[in-house]
């Protein structure tokens, strides 16, 4: 079992789900299909724990997280190394739990490669394996 330390920015409840890892930053406005709940090049995120290094691109990207929620296609949580105002704004208006990853990105990425499922525990850990 591996425990990765996280800290809640927008809090959610405890849950386990599939993990979707994006190794590269995601452009919310450019890379996300809000109808399908898909991050292009990464896969389906709806109902899953999305782990990304950062978000990039236009500030109106926050609205994309809102749209995902409205369509019932939002991830169940987002875990990220680098939290910026666009992601924080989007998580609040989309009511999507958001966690800052406290481990170095490269270490976390290597640990999460090929991992199928994980759990958010007490808002403090992402537990896998």
């Amino acid at each position: 079992m591996i425990k990765l330390r996280i800290r809640p920015i927008v809090e959610g409840r405890e849950y386990c789900s599939e993990i979707v890892l994006s190794e590269k930053p995601v452009s919310l406005l450019g890379d996300v299909d809000v109808e399908g709940g898909i991050v292009r090049g990464v896969g389906e995120i709806s109902g899953k724990i999305l782990v990304v290094p950062a978000s990039v691109g236009s500030t109106v990207g926050s609205y994309v997280l809102y749209a995902l929620s409205r369509n019932g296609k939002a991830p169940i949580a987002i875990v990220t190394s680098s939290i910026d105002p666009i992601l924080a704004t989007g998580a609040v208006i989309g009511d999507i739990p958001l966690y800052r990853l406290l481990e170095p990105w490269d270490k976390a990425k290597n640990m999460l490669r090929g991992v199928k499922e994980g759990c958010i525990v007490k808002g403090e850990y992402l537990v896998v394996g």
Partner: peptide, 16 residues
């Protein structure tokens, strides 16, 4: 406020 062009915010922004 910025981000009000429909071409930028699309239906997501309009809806919000």
């Amino acid at each position: 406020i910025s981000g009000i062009s429909y071409f930028n915010i699309l239906d997501y922004g309009l809806e919000f």
